[in-house]
């Protein structure tokens, strides 16, 4: 279970998050929707442990324990995974090498045995197949020259391989055409389960047709301003965010 309590965050003295309260129980999928600049991406980075953010108040608990003092690697080992909106290119590092390093680093941190190379290859290849990631892609530099769809599939592949309990998907639908959206969503849905929570951050309702959330939160000006069921996403699609922007102002 992820609990965010009265979270206040500033960047260079500028308040971005102004008291976020949010709980994602075990096994549930929640969506956060909101206009650009409402602090959605900041929230995802803060949960994942990126520097450059000052947490001035509040706490983030994962399974009852604060993760604020943990570095990003410790958080992913604890089970909190962020799929990036803009995955980063690392030239010269073969994707396969990166995946292997990541898997074994996480396994080591979890006191699990490191996988042998053949076991590793089998695991990666079978998951890759489900996400239509071609073997050729695994040989290329990580995210280098990948299309938008390929990058997002790679994020979901990493998510599947690192076996997190909490998945945060930051605008996973951005830059995807309809076919890519379907493949990525199927990949995400395959990972849904009673032991895994998800926080799906998106600007558009479209993604939520594929990944149907248990709850939808509307975020504006660094706060959760409304919470409802999946139908709330449809309402937003009709009315837009204008109402909430005014509320916040």
């Amino acid at each position: 279970m992820l609990e965010i309590k009265n979270l206040h965050v500033e960047v260079e003295g500028q308040p971005i998050l102004n008291g976020i309260d949010l709980t994602v129980p075990k096994g549930e999928v929640h969506a956060i929707m909101g206009p650009n600049g409402s602090g959605k991406s900041t929230l995802s980075y803060v949960i994942a442990g990126k520097d450059d953010y000052d947490i001035t108040k509040g706490d983030i608990l994962w399974n009852g324990e604060s993760i604020l003092e943990m570095d990003p690697a410790e958080r992913v080992a604890a089970g909190v995974f962020l799929a990036f909106q803009y995955p980063i290119e690392i030239p010269g590092v073969a994707t396969m090498t990166f995946l292997r390093t990541a898997i074994n680093s996480v396994r080591k941190a979890r006191d699990e045995e490191e996988l042998s190379i053949p076991d590793m290859m089998k695991l990666i290849q079978s998951q890759a197949k489900q996400l239509a990631v071609k073997p050729e892609m695994l040989k290329r530099g990580l995210n280098v020259g990948f299309s938008g769809g390929e990058k997002k599939r790679m994020e979901i592949l990493q998510m599947a391989l690192l076996n997190p309990g909490m998945c945060i998907l930051d605008e996973t639908d951005s830059g995807l055409d309809i076919d890519a959206l379907r493949i990525v969503s199927e990949g995400v849905n395959a990972l849904r389960g009673p032991d895994r929570s998800m926080l799906v951050i998106t600007h558009y309702q479209r993604l939520l047709n594929y990944i149907v959330p248990d709850k939808v939160h509307v975020m504006s000006d660094g706060k959760i301003v409304k919470t409802g069921g999946k139908e709330l996403a449809l309402e937003l699609e009709e009315s837009g965010y204008a109402e909430y922007d005014e509320d916040a102002a």
């Binding site: 442990g49 990126k50 690697a73 992913v76 080992a77 995955p87 690392i90 990541a102």
Partner: peptide, 20 residues
């Protein structure tokens, strides 16, 4: 940050990026 968010510690991340 990206490499760390995938479980690599700082030194592993640097080593990987430099090897690349």
């Amino acid at each position: 940050f990206y490499a760390q968010a995938r479980g690599l510690n700082e030194e592993e991340a640097v080593a990987l990026i430099v090897n690349g």
